[in-house]
Nucleic acid binder design. Structure first.
Length: 546
RNA sequence: GGCUGGGUAGCUCAGUGGCAGAGCAAGCGGCUCAUAAUCGCUAGGUCGUUGGUUCAAAUCCAACCCCAGCUACCA
């Protein structure tokens, strides 16, 4: 990938029925890091995230609370935005499925599929739980008394039969298989790709894309006879029904790229480079979505990354189980940078991971307070003491330079390969190497010799501390996508300007800045050392929620 | 049931034929620049089980046991 490439990255849109947990925002933090990395590299980057607001469940929940669906959605979206702000998430657009342009886009996608002969009227049949909604055949439990909803055994299931529109997914089976074969890295990680490919090979059925009777949702734009469902006064005929789920939710990715209102923007941003999504919706993103796009004459996204879930003692974290972490609590305790680092270091980005409050606090103290924070602190403190605040330059034969070059290569590969936890692990190898260098060189011993008149010791001391300062600069800068405010604070203490904006835009190409000794000739003054990541006392570090 | 991933130190995991590894947690020692920090050392594993191939198996093969995922319309 060359410089000045454009890079369009998205997350799944979250279901706006409640306040978000860290397990929901995990994917958004990860995507934000990747977006910032590309912005800092100089790529023309667009990062899209947002909320999914149409569904019977949301309308129903709103009604229970005596609110209009939109009012209910607005409140929840505000909670999402507050949590994302606290986590320093930097979307270029926060999209809502209730946004007017998204409504137009979804309707246009339906029209295109219709024009292409890919949607037709059919009958959807299935079990319906009045307490919960439609159930799949595999969800329903067979008992001597008949079929039951596993979550609501006392509520009788209804067998519903509904007339609605279907998308001809079956027509795309061969093309999908070929796409997976021609683009082996379309869906990753590999084991998820294999699952999806297996699903395709098992045969594809058409799926329904409209619902009758719902009144909260995007109006289906076509009447059964093929005419427009829009009336002369601009309103939509309720008899046409609403667009159902995937022809609403998935469409946000092209809405966010400018389709169809802004053809120039769309030509620039589409196809998306990366959709970051959870494993629960892999099929819809890697199978339904490409087919829907092809049907509209558009290209499939380039890559879909499928991440796992956060677990608490082996159980999936969820709002309903109550075993989730509140992102606001985590930010309050660890700081925004700490929360981002610890989440992405503790949770593997390619599979499920068990996490706990204790593991988060341990990781924060070990990696941030003790290893990196203290490295920065001791380096600046010594340089201030021995050289009166003048920043020492890198030495002529720094052993760390080689370590750095190797690490940076691995770091970039892992980060661009979505193995964010591995990227951080690699970067922290340099932190360890730098701390070991301090012990090996014992700057305090060199300083005593220098004071006693040993010039060679003075030269060596300057070089050692220069290398340590350089290591701190590079580590902080490389970690900036993960820790967007710690990086500028660290660089300020080291006497460097931070040339990037709050979202990572502007400034020189990151990879140029990340060359060892890149600022060798530049004089500067160090600030007083100030702990970047104050150590947490374990007892004090208990979440408010318990 | 079928397919896929996994089962390695107290915890999280790396390790695809050559003397069992890392980080964290634990114990001991060193150092004093630093946020009771840091550096070194030690301890700790029948590598899920059983059999097989091989001079040599955590690694390859077979069977079995456990955990998780996928096996169609949930946001």
């Amino acid at each position: 990938m060359s410089l000045a490439d454009r890079y369009y990255i998205t997350t799944a849109i979250a279901y706006a029925n409640n306040r978000p947990g860290l397990h929901t925002l995990f994917e958004v933090i990860g995507a934000d890091v990747i977006a910032r990395w590309h912005r800092m590299k100089g790529d023309d980057t667009r990062f899209l995230t947002g909320t999914d607001e149409h569904s019977v469940n949301i309308a129903q929940r709103a009604a229970e609370l005596g609110k209009a669906p939109m009012e209910f959605a607005n409140e929840n979206v505000a909670l999402f935005r507050a949590a994302e702000d606290a986590l320093l998430i930097s979307p270029d657009r926060f999209i809502r499925t209730t946004d007017p342009d998204h409504v137009r886009t979804a309707q246009e996608m339906v029209r295109r599929a219709y024009a292409n002969g890919d949607i037709y009227l059919g009958t959807y049949e299935g079990w319906y739980c009045p307490a919960e909604g439609f159930k799949t055949a595999s969800d329903v439990v067979e008992t001597p008394n008949g079929s039951q909803c596993p979550n609501h055994p006392t509520v009788p299931l209804q067998w519903l039969s509904e007339h609605n529109w279907f998308f001809r997914l079956s027509a795309y089976q061969e093309r999908l298989e070929r796409h997976f074969e021609d683009h082996p890295d379309f869906a990753r990680p590999d084991y998820r790709r294999n699952e999806m490919l297996g699903f395709i090979r098992g045969g594809l059925e058409d799926f329904s894309i409209s619902r009758a009777g719902a009144d909260w949702g995007i109006p289906f734009p076509i009447m059964p006879d093929g005419s427009s469902s829009q009336r002369p006064d601009g309103s939509w005929d309720p008899a046409a029904g609403k667009i159902y789920v995937w022809y609403d939710a998935l469409i946000n990715y092209v809405t966010g790229a400018g389709f169809p209102d802004d053809p120039a923007a769309f030509a620039h941003w589409w196809p998306a480079d990366l959709h970051v999504i959870g494993k629960d919706i892999a099929r819809f993103h890697t199978i339904y979505w490409p087919a829907m796009l092809w049907s509209a004459g558009l290209e499939a996204p380039r890559h879909v990354w499928i991440h796992g879930f956060l677990l608490a003692q082996g159980e999936r974290m969820s709002k309903s189980l109550g075993n989730f972490l509140d992102p606001i609590d985590v930010v309050k305790t660890l700081g925004a940078d700490g929360a981002r680092y610890v989440t992405l270091r503790e949770v593997a980005f390619d599979k499920d991971t068990d996490v706990s409050w204790d593991s988060f606090v341990r990781r924060y103290n070990a990696d941030l307070a003790n290893d990196f924070g203290n490295l920065l602190n001791r380096t600046i403190s010594m340089a201030n003491r021995y050289f009166d605040g003048e920043r020492p330059a890198v030495g002529p034969e720094a052993g760390l330079a080689g370590v750095w070059a190797d690490t940076l290569a691995v770091y970039g590969d892992r980060l661009e390969g979505c193995l964010l936890h591995d990227a951080l692990r690699a970067l922290w190898d340099v932190v360890g190497a730098a701390n070991r260098l301090v012990e090996a060189e014992q700057p305090w011993t060199l300083a005593k010799a220098m004071k006693a008149g040993d010039e060679a010791a003075g030269v060596r001391l300057r070089a050692v501390l220069g290398d340590l300062v350089e290591a701190c600069r590079l580590i902080a800068l490389a970690a900036a996508p993960f820790m967007p405010t710690a990086a500028p604070r660290a660089l300020a203490q080291l006497g460097y300007e931070y040339p990037y904006g709050p979202d990572g835009n502007g400034g020189p190409a990151l990879l140029d800045e990340l060359r060892w000794g890149g600022h060798a000739g530049q004089a500067g003054r160090l600030m007083t050392a100030e702990p970047l990541f104050p150590r947490l006392e374990t007892e004090a570090a208990t979440p408010a929620a318990g």
